[in-house]
Design a protein around this nucleic acid. Structure first.
Length: 659
DNA sequence: ACGCGCCGAATTTTT
DNA sequence: TTCGGCGCGT
């Protein structure tokens, strides 16, 4: 791999902490992998003393594969490439006892956490998704900052903080009772352990002698603390980030952490990577011009040796349906004239709901597409159901799991019975499942309910008792296939769901077979913080994704759709005066394009069923007008012309698809 | 306990 | 427009 001068500098400098400011497409992954190779080959680092931390499993996996192919499996696989959460779990595993949990703990995902908060709150907040989410964010923030419920209570300066402290405490108590951790805990608890225990700290500092961190602009406070604690007194670290691609601040990411590095590590050397290897000149110029409207801590100017490229097109359509028709028609013609594959095209949008129309248009013309984002594998009802069963079998105190599955498939255990059980649980400070086991001691339970509960507990206990958990046998006992048929709208849908179930079971079986001591809890937790991606990647299909999901990816031809005020920038960001992050989002979208970039908008659009006029995104005016082709369509066009245009797209498509 | 129907709300989401 | 949550009726 031939590195440029700056990249080489970032690789070679190991005497002091290094911050690599890596612009879009500047080859940061190469820097990380080459640096690891340099550390091993030239600096005598043992591979298992090097850790590369990323945010996504996908990125971690990619890096692992790259190292494997560069160093060979025997060296490459020894390097710890993980996400913050995986690393957190590794740190917790040994010392889980010190954080009031036991070995078979469960991980609660966001929905589980929200459900817990919902159960802990009263009317007004109860049931209000938005408010619950805000509450959860505030608790997350506390965890990130290392603030405990008691500290929050004593420092509370207003009523909301007092309220938060109360809920926070109840939430933590409940999590402890359930022997559960949330995603935040997987970072904040390791930080606490590293911070407070000299033995743990030195163990990990000794274990990880060189630390590399990717996407640093996305770290939150807790993750930064983790980096600092692992780096230790003689920091051997390289972090890579780009403040212009910080698009997760709304989720607690602190791009200021980039700046903070300079203060915390006075010897820090900053290396800027400004040569872009991805985009053609025009795309880059447009991107630079746009992002220049944002304030910068570190100035940088991306440049490219690639060819000029074509002008960036901006296409105004009459409404969102025309927009979709246009994009599909244009895409098809570009594919043929440019001899491109479907997978060279991406359609990027701000919100998932925008995908629908494009999906419809693509289906209409039989064009293969793949939609990423939206419903993740783990968000699917059938997967959540089964994961809940597995969690409950591994950890009977997992109330969230218990609530989810106690009446799925139907066992006639309804709200009333559940309420009685929950009350018994609170009275005795025990989990729901324990209450179920002791149901004969609970008054107010009818005979029918008793029987139903007994059947349920027996099912779970039986699975628990077996020395080797047999997934297939369990599914049959459960009758989950029948349940899917009953509850799905069509046999087709049921089949799809059943396939998902099969997929999950394969992973569970694999996990159980792989580990030397089969442990269901371990396998389930690993799965939850990994991510099953179904193997559909090789098919040649148009990619539909949100701007957020597009970060880190690149496509030959990019369509950025819905370039309108209230969509991009999104309305709520306008209201909260948070335009800069939206501008970065736009910047991320533009810099995904290698050659062609088309931005589209609709002059009117249905919002909540109402048709209303739209306004072009302010970002369009921030682009260098000489580089863009923006046909000025004067005034609204008539119904007739609209029909003509529609017909035109149809004809064009029909001709192209035939040829 | 369950199912239907009405009403109200609708960014982004690495783990 | 579509989806999900809640409440009422069976």
């Amino acid at each position: 791999m031939q590195l440029n001068e700056r990249q080489q500098r970032a690789v070679d400098q190991i005497a002091c902490p290094v911050l690599v400011l890596a612009g879009a497409g500047s080859g940061k992954t190469s820097v990380i992998t080459e640096k690891i190779i340099h550390l091993i080959k030239n600096c005598h680092y043992a591979p298992d003393n090097i850790a590369a931390v990323t945010f996504t499993n996908k990125a971690a996996k990619e890096m692992q594969q790259r190292l494997r192919s560069l160093l060979g499996p025997d060296l490459g696989d020894k390097i710890r490439t993980s996400t913050f959460h995986t690393l957190g779990m590794a740190i917790l595993r040994k010392d889980i006892g010190r954080v009031n949990r036991s070995h078979h703990f469960s991980i609660f995902d966001e929905q589980d956490s929200l459900q817990v908060l919902n159960d802990l709150t009263e009317r007004q907040i109860k049931g209000d998704k938005g408010l619950l989410y805000e509450l959860k964010n505030r608790i997350s923030f506390c965890k990130s900052e290392g603030i405990k419920p008691k500290q929050l209570r004593s420092s509370a300066s207003n009523q909301q903080q007092q309220f938060d402290a109360h809920i926070y405490q109840a939430y933590q108590d409940h999590m402890e009772l359930c022997n559960a951790l949330d995603f935040d805990d997987l970072i904040s608890l390791p930080v606490e352990l590293l911070n407070e225990h000299q033995d743990i700290r030195s163990h990990w500092q000794n274990q990880i002698r060189y630390l590399l961190v990717d996407e640093y602009q996305d770290t939150n406070q807790a993750q930064y603390q983790m980096v600092k604690l692992l780096a230790g007194p003689d920091p051997k670290i390289t972090v890579v980030g780009d403040d212009d691609q910080s698009i997760y601040a709304w989720r607690g990411a602190k791009p200021e952490n980039l700046q903070q590095l300079q203060e915390d590590f006075p010897t820090l050397e900053v290396v800027k990577l400004e040569q872009n290897y991805r985009c053609c000149q025009r795309v880059l110029k447009v991107a630079n011009h746009l992002i220049a409207n944002n304030p910068h801590i570190f100035e940088k100017q991306l440049w490219s040796q690639h060819q000029q490229g074509e002008q960036i097109r901006i296409i105004e359509n009459d409404d969102e349906e025309h927009e979709a028709d246009f994009v599909v028609a244009d895409l098809v013609s570009q594919r043929i004239s440019g001899r491109l594959k479907y997978s060279d095209f991406a359609i990027l949008y701000r919100g998932n709901h925008q995908a629908k129309l494009f999906e419809k248009a693509l289906i209409k013309h039989g064009i293969p597409y793949q939609i990423s984002g939206g419903m993740s594998f783990f968000a699917r009802a059938e997967i959540r159901d089964l994961m809940a069963y597995f969690r409950l079998i591994a950890n009977p105190d997992d109330d969230a799991a218990c609530i989810r599955v106690i009446n799925v498939p139907r066992r006639s255990i309804g709200a009333k019975t559940l309420q009685v059980l929950a009350q018994a649980g609170r009275d005795n400070k025990q989990s729901l499942f324990k209450s179920c086991k002791n149901s004969h001691n609970i008054a107010n339970l009818g005979a029918r309910a008793q029987t139903a509960i007994n059947d349920f507990t027996q099912l779970i206990e039986q699975a628990r008792a077996s020395t080797q958990f047999d997934v297939d046998k369990f599914l049959i006992e459960l009758g989950y296939d029948h349940w899917l048929m009953e509850t799905s709208s069509s046999p087709k849908v049921a089949e799809g769901r059943w396939n998902n179930v099969q997929e999950l079971c394969r992973w569970i079986k694999d996990g159980l077979a792989q580990s030397d001591s089969p442990d269901l809890a371990e396998v389930v937790n690993q799965l939850l913080i990994r991510d099953l991606q179904q193997q559909e990647e090789d098919s040649d299909s148009v990619q539909l994704l949100t701007l957020h999901a597009a970060k880190g990816l690149e496509y030959s031809q990019v369509y950025m759709v819905g370039m309108e005020e209230d969509l991009l920038p999104h309305r709520s960001s306008i209201e909260e005066d948070n335009i800069e992050e939206e501008r970065r989002l736009c910047y991320v979208g533009i810099t995904r394009a290698k050659h062609g970039l088309v931005m589209t908008l609709a002059k009117k659009r249905r919002r909540f069923g109402e048709v209303s006029a739209t306004e072009p995104s302010r970002f369009l005016e921030e682009l260098p007008q000489e580089e863009i082709d923006w046909p000025d369509q004067a005034g609204p066009i008539s119904e007739e012309e609209q029909q003509d245009k529609n017909q035109f797209y149809r004809d064009q498509l029909a001709a192209l698809l035939k040829g």
